[in-house]
């Protein structure tokens, strides 16, 4: 039975697209068949992070509107064979998405894949609500700062009221993924601590991704960080998060100050 997972946050720039690509690639490397779907119509990015921008022919809007078939629009990853991308359209906007059309595409994807990861656009409007509409689970990407946490809280409220599952009276499974966690700044009290975030959001923690230049470097070469440098700290954190998604129990590693300090040093040299 396929699982449809929405990666969402409310706030922009917190790492939704990076996390979608990294988690998708991590799951695919574990042998699961995975489709990553870009819902950011008009501002698509997932194709770039996945390194597939030069192979886009048809897109999500074409499939939603019935212009193209799903198999025509799906792009197979060159590195991991059971990882596929359904790109968004860059020339259209979110109004081109219809509830009924998205429902049809998601239902079709469910029959073909183990995991369908929907990369939500920022905001709480049509694109974001349709990305979460048919999801079974949600990963809420949060940065350790108050504005991001409050937006995440808002999104959780919407997940509990505006999804098909919620309307049926069921509960959508929610995880918080803390990204751009900087242990040095956390130690100085310049960022919200992990406990503070979990206390506010009151949902289970999926993983803590340390702030790292590895993430930026991977994006720049068009590769999910879990494919580009599987040994890097953020990649390892994403791998653990992916295993937790499949139901495994893994001890949570809070990035330590020392390693964060090293990352910063290395980061500066490589940039």
């Amino acid at each position: 039975m396929a699982k449809v997972l929405v990666v969402t946050s409310g706030k922009g720039g917190v790492g939704k697209t990076t996390s979608t690509a990294a988690l998708g690639a991590a799951l695919a490397q574990r042998g699961e068949s995975v489709a990553v779907v870009d819902f950011d119509v008009g501002l698509r990015n997932l194709d770039l992070v996945m390194g597939a921008e030069r192979r886009v022919v048809f897109d999500l809007i074409n499939v939603v509107q019935g212009v193209a078939k799903l198999q025509q629009a799906l792009i197979r990853d060159k590195r991991v064979e059971n990882l596929w991308l359904l790109p968004a359209s860059q020339t259209r906007d979110k109004d081109a998405l219809t509830d009924e059309g998205v429902g049809r595409v998601i239902a079709d994807l469910r029959t073909r894949f183990d995991w369908v990861l929907c990369d939500s656009p920022a905001g709480i409007e049509r694109g974001a609500t349709l990305a979460m509409r048919y999801a079974d689970e949600a990963v809420i990407v949060t940065n350790p700062e108050v504005s991001s946490v409050r937006d995440s809280d808002r999104i959780i409220g919407m997940l509990d009221s505006k999804t098909v599952k919620a309307e049926k009276g069921e509960r959508i499974t929610k995880h918080v993924l803390i990204t751009r966690y900087d242990p040095v700044r956390a130690a100085k009290g310049e960022m919200l601590g992990i406990d503070d975030i979990l206390e506010i959001l009151a949902i289970p923690l999926l993983g803590i991704i340390p702030e790292s230049q590895d993430v930026l470097r991977a994006s720049n070469v068009g590769s999910p960080v879990t494919l580009n440098d599987a040994a890097s700290a953020p990649a390892r954190a994403y791998f653990d998060a992916a295993r937790r998604l499949t139901g495994e129990q893994i001890a949570m590693l809070v990035p330590t100050e020392r390693r964060g300090f090293m990352n910063r040093l290395l980061g500066r040299r490589a940039a």
């Binding site: 709480i124 409050r150 937006d151 809280d153 409220g157």
Partner: peptide
């Protein structure tokens, strides 16, 4: 959650949990 508005003018409201910013 943040952004939610609970309006109950008939009486008391009890929340088992937090009320978000």
């Amino acid at each position: 959650r943040s952004g939610q508005s609970i309006i109950f003018t008939e009486g008391d409201v009890t929340v088992l949990g937090s009320v978000g910013s």
